[in-house]
C-alpha cells in the first residue's frame, strides 16, 4: 500500500490527515462565529497572492480555510498564520467570492486563546498583552511602557535597540503616560462583573 499523500502541499504542513482527529463541527462553528461562508472558497489563492504577510505565514489564508474545512482544529489554531495576520483586509477585498477572510483569522485567534491552544507566535501575543495592560493602567496606550515591558517579557533587550533610541531621541516616545482622568471607568472593564 502506498503511504498516505501529504495533506496539503504547503510549507511545513506536509502531515497526513488522521480522520479520527477531524473535528466535523469546526467549519460550522467558524462560519457561525465569523459570519463568513467557507464553502464559497474555491482555493484560487487570490488571498495569499495579495497578502503582504505571506512570507511570515506557515499556511496561506486559503490553506487555513482548507484546514477548517477538513476539521483540522489543532493545525488551524496552532498555526503561525492566524497571528501573523494583522487584519489589513487585503484578502477580504480581493476574494472573488466575497469571503471576509480576515474575520475568519480573527475568529481563529479568539478560539485559540479561549481554548488554551499552543500559540505559535508568543512574541506577538506578548506584545498584545502589554498593549492591553497599558490600556488597563492608563486608559490609553503608552508606547514606551509597552515596549519596555514587552522587551522584559521576551528578554530581547538588544533587538531593535537602535530604533528605540532613535525614537527616544526624536521624542517619539513620551516618558510620562497620557492618562484618562476617570480611570476607574476603564479598570472596571477588566474586572469580571461578579467581582465588581
Amino acid at each position: 500500500m502506498n503511504p498516505p499523500a501529504p495533506a496539503l502541499n504547503l510549507r511545513g504542513a506536509a502531515s497526513p490527515i488522521v480522520l479520527a482527529e477531524q473535528d466535523r463541527y469546526l467549519a460550522r462553528d467558524i462560519e457561525r462565529l465569523s459570519r463568513a461562508n467557507l464553502s464559497r472558497c474555491f482555493h484560487c489563492r487570490s488571498c495569499g497572492n495579495g497578502c503582504p504577510f505571506i512570507r511570515g505565514m506557515d499556511y496561506p489564508p486559503n490553506g487555513i480555510i482548507r484546514l477548517v474545512q477538513y476539521g483540522l482544529r489543532r493545525q488551524a489554531l496552532e498555526s503561525h498564520t492566524i497571528w501573523i495576520c494583522v487584519g489589513c483586509h487585503t484578502c477580504s477585498v480581493q476574494c472573488p467570492m466575497g469571503i471576509d477572510i480576515a474575520a475568519i483569522m480573527a475568529t481563529l485567534r479568539r478560539l485559540a486563546l479561549a481554548e488554551g491552544a499552543m500559540i505559535a507566535e508568543t512574541n506577538i501575543l506578548d506584545f498584545h498583552r502589554e498593549v492591553l495592560q497599558s490600556i488597563k493602567q492608563y486608559g490609553r496606550a503608552h508606547k514606551l511602557g509597552i515596549m519596555l515591558r514587552y522587551k522584559a517579557r521576551v528578554r530581547q533587550w538588544f533587538a531593535d535597540l537602535d530604533v528605540g533610541l532613535r525614537m527616544l531621541a526624536k521624542r517619539k516616545m513620551d516618558l510620562k503616560a497620557s492618562r484618562v482622568k476617570a480611570i476607574g471607568e476603564i479598570t472596571r472593564l477588566f474586572i469580571p462583573h461578579w467581582k465588581r
Partner: peptide
C-alpha cells in the same frame, strides 16, 4: 494601500522590513 505592517513592527520586524 498596501499594509505597512501595523503592530508586527514591534514583534516581527523581520516580516515588516521587506514590506
Amino acid at each position: 494601500q498596501r499594509c505597512c505592517g501595523s503592530f508586527l513592527s514591534a514583534a516581527r520586524a523581520d516580516v515588516v522590513t521587506p514590506l
